[in-house]
Each structure stands twice: as C-alpha cells, then as structure tokens.
Design a protein around this nucleic acid. Sequence first.
DNA 1: ACCGTCGCGA
DNA 2: TCGCGACGGT
Lengths: 375, 375
Amino acid sequence: MLEAKLQEAGTLKKLLDSIKELVTDANFECNEEAIVLQAMDNSHVALVSVKFSAAAFKRYRCDRPMPLGVNLTSLNKVLKCAKDDDICTLKAADEADVLNLVYEAKNSDRIAEYDMKLMDIDADTLQIPETEYDARVTLPSSEFTRIVRDLSQLGESVRIEVSKEGVRFASDGEAANGSVLLRQSDGAHISGSVIKPKSDDKDGDDEDEAEGSSSKKEKTKIKKEKGDDDVDMTEEQNEEEGEKEDEEEEYKPVENGDDGEEEQDNEDEDEDEEGGSKKRKKKANGTSKPAKKPKTAKSKGKAAEEDESADGVVIEMNQHVCLTFSLKYLVNFSKSSSLSNKVQLMMSNDVPLLVSYDFNQGYIRYYLAPKIGED
Amino acid sequence: MLEAKLQEAGTLKKLLDSIKELVTDANFECNEEAIVLQAMDNSHVALVSVKFSAAAFKRYRCDRPMPLGVNLTSLNKVLKCAKDDDICTLKAADEADVLNLVYEAKNSDRIAEYDMKLMDIDADTLQIPETEYDARVTLPSSEFTRIVRDLSQLGESVRIEVSKEGVRFASDGEAANGSVLLRQSDGAHISGSVIKPKSDDKDGDDEDEAEGSSSKKEKTKIKKEKGDDDVDMTEEQNEEEGEKEDEEEEYKPVENGDDGEEEQDNEDEDEDEEGGSKKRKKKANGTSKPAKKPKTAKSKGKAAEEDESADGVVIEMNQHVCLTFSLKYLVNFSKSSSLSNKVQLMMSNDVPLLVSYDFNQGYIRYYLAPKIGED
DNA sequence: ACCGTCGCGA
DNA sequence: TCGCGACGGT
C-alpha cells in the first residue's frame, strides 16, 4: 500500500512536463525509502532516472516495494488537473490497477480526486552506471537551457569541452558555427576530489540502493568499465560483474550519432589509454595535471551544489574532457530547468554524459551517450 | 433606426469571441428595450441567448423593432479592428443592409468607421423555457472553466451532481476517472427560495419580454412544462400555451448523448414524479428537506450573485439533481468567462442546463440538454 | 496582451 | 501535407 502526500503538486507536474516527451510509459518503483523511475527514452538513446525520496513527501508510507506501471501521457493529463499549489496525495493499494490522486486546494474548499489506470510494464530496472567522472560543470539551469537552445539552431550536435579555460559548448552548422564559453565564476576550476553524482539527499549513496550486492566501491569501478564499453556500443559485454539480476538490464546507450561506426578501444586517443580503467580519476590526476585544491568551496563532499550561489558556474575537473552530444536530446533534458535552478553536467571521455537536476529530496537525471568519432 | 453607443468596445469583442465558434449567423433583434440574440449553435444542440439591455449602452435609441442579420465571423473581424477601450457606436438605418460601426478612441484622436453587410436570416426567434430550477450553483467563472477543461481531458461528458455535500463534477474516461467537489464557501447550501435565472438588470422580469401575452406567472409555469417535454425530445408539444407565434419555434434540444433513447416521463425516478409539474420547487421544498434559511446572505431575491464575494461558491438547492452533459459544449460555454467573474449553473433533473454569465445590464446564457440514460 | 504549440480541416 | 484556428503559457 502506497500513500504519499506531496505538499506541492507543481513538483510532480513539472517533472512530468519534463519527461513526457522522452518517455511514454514507465514504472514508478515505490518502496519504503523512495519512489524511483528509470526508463530509456522512446528511441532508446537516452536514459532517464528520477527519484523522490520518502523525505520529499509531507507524508510517506509504502509497506512493501511495488511497481506502478504508468502511462505518462495519462498521468500528465491527470496532473494537469491539479493546480501547482494543491496538496497532492498519491495512493495505490497493493496489487491495485489504479493509482488514486487527490488534489486538495490550499483552502480546502475544493477536492478533486482522480483514478488513473495502471498498466503492466516490463520491469526493465536498468542498472545505471554509477561512475566517477572526470569533470563536473554546475551551472544555472536557465543558462544551460539557453546554450543548448541557441546552439540547436545552428547544428545537430554540440561539442562540450572542459578544460582549464572553462567549459566550451560548440556547434557547427551549415550556416554558422557557434561556441559558448563559460568560465568558473571565481576562476577556480580544477578539482582533485571525487566527482560523482550527488543529490541533496542526506545520504549521498542512496542512489545505489537498487543495485546488486557488491560493495559500493566495487560497483563504482565496475560500472565505470561498463560505461566505457557501453559507449562503444558493443553488445558483448559479459565481464566480471556478477550482480546482474534476472530482469535487470544494463544501460546500453545506443549511439545517437549518424556518423559513428563502432570504435572499440579507441579511447586511447586521449590521455585515457588505460585498458581496464581501474580508476580513471586517479590516473587523470596523476598524468594530466596536479590537482589544485579548489579555492572556491564545495567541490568536494556532498555539499557541492546547494551552497553554490544560484547563478554561478562551478567547474570541477580532474581531466580534460571533450565530448559530442546530440543537441536534440540536450534540449529535451533542459526542460527540467523548472525543477531546479541549477544543473550538473558530469562527463568523462567516451562515457555517457550525466545531466542532473537536483531538487528537494529528489532528482532527475539524464544519461546520454556521446557521439563518437568527432571530437 | 438603431443607434447604440457602447462605452467599451471590449464588451462586444469578448462576447463575439465567446460565441463565434458556436454560432456563425444570427439575428440581433433590436427593439427599444434591448438588443437580443438567440440562436441554436451550429449543430443544433445548444442554445445561446444574449441580451444587452438598453441601459447597457451609454446611449441607446431604437425606434422600432428590427432584426439585424449578422454573420458573426464577419462581425468578429470588424470588431477586431476596435481597441478594447474604444467607444463603439452601432448604427443601422431602417431596412438597411449594412450595420455601421464607429470606433472612437478614448482621447478622440482616432475615429474608425466600418460598414458591415447584413444578411437575411430565418427569424427563428426561439422561445426559451423560462423555468424554475431545482438547483443553482454560482461559482467563479474561472473555476468553472478550469473544471470543465480539466475533466474534458479525461472524458466526453461530465456528471454534475448537486447534493447537500456540495456540487460534484465527475467524468469517466479511458485512462482515468476524475471528480471535483466544490463545497459552499461558507457551508450553507440549501435554499428554499425561488431559483430562476436572474441577471443584474434592475427589472428581473425583463427576460420575458419577447414572449407572449400571458402573465409572467403563467408563463413561468408553461415554460416549465415545455422545458420538461423538451428534454424528452418529443416533437409533439402542442400544449395549452397559445402564444406561439408564426415563425417562432420552441427550443427543442437535440439529445447530444449517443446512448440515450427517448425516455418520456421517466422523471419519476427521483422524488419528482409530478406529472404536470406545476411547481417543481414547491414540491421539492416539501419533500426533499426543510429549507434552511441560508446563513449567507443573498440566496434569494435578485441580489443573489452580485454581492457574493468574487471567489465564493454558492449553492442553492431545492432538490438533489444529477445530470450529465457534453463537456465539449461546456468548455465552449466557459469561454464567456471573460465577460463575468461569476457564472451560474441552473439545473433541474432532466431539464436543460442553463449556464448564465451576467454582466453589466446584460447577459449571455447557454442552454444545453442533458445526456440521458447515464445518470 | 502577445507568442508559440497543438489540433483540426481543406 | 499544408494552412488556419484555437488553446495554453510567458
């Protein structure tokens, strides 16, 4: 039995507005700790991962894990019937085939109730590569929206390059080429700390809870390897990880470029020629440049983004990265800017980009494989 | 000869925006007391009734009754040429084939003049059932708009139920079912007073002026009967009213449901088994529940809506009603919300719904027959 | 009040 | 498939 009371229906509304174009059906996996949604986008190029921690709710109760198969188009319709400041309660009985949504006006003189049919959706609980990254750029989400929208007018794809100069977004098009350079707000941009996704959840590790039994450290490493292989679009990746569960798949991003052939093992173009890639970060640290301790605060630990000023750009970099992505998807991701003032872009060479919007006790993350052969 | 000077062209503009989709051609019946438009919508399901009292105009003169056959699409185009705060004067000579519109800017530094061709339109001056109702719900027009728009996302029709609980709008759809409950703002919702349409005109009876020669009392009763028959879609309604004029028809709403058979005399399902239906209200008063005098003011007399606070919901009920309507039409009606902050829904079981937007010295009313066989 | 997006009709 | 109209959002 699920009962989750959200103070502001607007949060959920914005969330659905963000992803409805990318994903049409998905399971909301509810358990006692959180509600999580993970799904490939409709063209199986990008991966969307959403999480609402139990603490995100005014009240939360979920006796036992239950997947709620939802048609997001329907859910979006139902959510359109809520006002942003309505109190929204989600209810589902065990084994229910409907999700009950109650919208309560602030002043309580209006109560709307909706029952939305649920559906069975193949429980492809995807393993998300939980990796460390070579660079993280934290920037105002509006800025990101602006940049990708601007560049999408020129070309199909954008080259994102993080260097000591800052972060550069560049696109080449028929009519014009464009490039936007963002510098760290206060100049610092080299980090020697661990760069991995972290939301503002109290527990920085909780995004691993759905994974296998190996320790977090091990998993990180393994995921990392898989991430590398994934980018090469090799289907035969039966390495040493043994935690794959029955219906769980790995996130195998499809190359979304149109010019990319399979380029197995061509990640040695950069300074990243490590075959097993045990610790990409460490190596980067050693070979590329000495890790300066960031003069700005919070490039380490879990406080990275929430105490950063709202409109600053923070660049954390352990290694120079240069990746190319489809702008169409980035533009789509950037719709989530209504959910957070800031967005984090996390990158390693030849590894899927992670775009993360963190909000109060939850996040929405997008993974997108780079186009290869053009950086 | 007609000459009518309207302080704000915006009023007329909004009016035409409201109805242009529903009606494309109609007669503006002008006489010395008012300009009235009555027309079935294009699909002959709903009836639209508009009235501008002479007092609505800054200056008004109409020597003798004249019908102005107007293509509303054209009129709308011409009105688009006026600014909202222009002073708008309508002029038509006797037997004229054009309507002359003059727009005068507030500061008089601009005068625009248009001549719009008139047309002959079958003068189907409809008799509107002037009935008493079992329930009236007065609510902010924006709220009504919101509710019908929301529910129209889910299903085709809405069930409106007025009970002591409040008023409930419910719709069932493929993907989801929805229900919105509004409670009387301050808790009172039972009325023992006469419930009939009343605008904020000084003369509460003036909506009868286009009718026959019988006294208002008689007419009310007669109309009531006709209303009942109408709903049953019987074509043979040649009762005792003798004021039917040559080209005048009755408003015979077409059943807009798809599953409804004719259900003559099945209004005895509820507490309303009165064959002749002399005074539905009285009976209801006696049988349903004692009429509590509303603790809130103004559930009686003609001051009902204008001194009600802007965003309150007032429910007056003499009897429980439950009716089903096509949402498509209600959504269309709700476009008139720009004309008034409030809207009144008046209902009796098995009788067409009346949706009324009252504005300064005038109103726009919509009548819509219920779907039958599903409430 | 204006602009952009979506849906419907030609 | 293109154009026009309507609706919703900024």
